[in-house]
């Protein structure tokens, strides 16, 4: 009984390593497919549409609400210390350092990542990928590589839009509703948000998140069991794994960037 259990554990462990190995092999194959995209920008543009443009609405709406909530909550706390002019700083720093990259990446995983997995998984299930191989078209270069590049480009843009919209959302609530002085909202922000420490680091974060989420989404789709159940499981795994990966990586990156 115990040995059965041990053996199962061993098998599970090997399976996990096998998956990690396959994920990396796929990653390198996708990277090798990137130069070929230079001559076919159309492929990437089409993917930027489905990965980026279609995520725009949810990103703008969430950014707006998150900024507004930050202003409300921040104001209530700051006003107790008579520091409500710092509202701009609180809103902007929370957004560009953390919430912009992280929340945008979580939304991206749910909106674009799951769609990517489902699409690729379905293409595998209906043998479209096999058919391409038999037509001497490499699906990794033709299907996966442009999707990967599009995800990598779209994520920092989406995160920037999220943060910028959020800052204005905070402005509407903080200045418009709660009566914080508009001048100090912006000037405090400018005095305390650093272009390198905060903005650039935030963009680096979202580049990393974009890479990881897109990678996971593509791998899960490409690696799924080719049945409808397999696709639906893979889609769920994409959302769960990439969300966890984003949060864990955020911790590591934050410690590295702002740790000192």
């Amino acid at each position: 009984m115990f040995f059965d259990w041990l053996q199962q554990l061993g098998h599970r462990g090997l399976d996990i390593f096998e998956r990690i190995g396959r994920a990396h092999l796929l990653f390198f194959a996708i990277l090798a497919g990137q130069p070929g995209l230079l001559s076919r920008p159309r492929l990437v543009i089409a993917q930027l549409y489905s990965v980026g443009v279609l995520s725009l609405l949810i990103i703008v709406m969430s950014g707006l609400f998150v900024g507004m909530v930050l202003a409300l909550q921040g104001y209530n706390t700051l006003v107790k210390f008579g520091a409500e002019e710092s509202l701009g700083t609180v809103v902007a720093l929370s957004l560009v350092r953390e919430l912009g990259p992280v929340v945008a990446a979580l939304l991206f995983a749910g909106r674009a990542g799951s769609a990517l997995t489902a699409e690729i998984g379905l293409m595998k299930t209906t043998e479209q990928l096999s058919a391409m191989e038999m037509m001497a078209v490499d699906p990794i270069r033709r299907i996966l590589a442009p999707r990967f590049l599009a995800g990598f480009i779209a994520m920092p843009l989406l995160a920037s839009i999220f943060s910028a919209v959020g800052v204005f959302g905070g402005y509407f609530v903080g200045v418009g509703q709660l009566g914080v002085d508009a001048g100090s909202y912006w000037s405090q922000m400018q005095a305390n948000v650093d272009i390198y420490d905060d903005i650039v680091n935030g963009v680096i974060k979202s580049l990393v998140f974009g890479l990881v989420v897109t990678w996971i989404a593509i791998f899960e789709g490409h690696d799924c069991t080719p049945t409808s159940e397999g696709v639906s499981r893979a889609t769920t795994r994409t959302v769960v794994h990439s969300s966890l990966a984003v949060l864990a990586l955020d911790f590591i990156l934050t410690a590295l960037m702002f740790g000192d």
Partner: peptide, 13 residues
């Protein structure tokens, strides 16, 4: 996206 990044750089930081 780039306008947002520009706003973050010029107006926010």
């Amino acid at each position: 996206g780039f306008v947002a990044l520009f706003v973050l750089s010029m107006q926010v930081s």
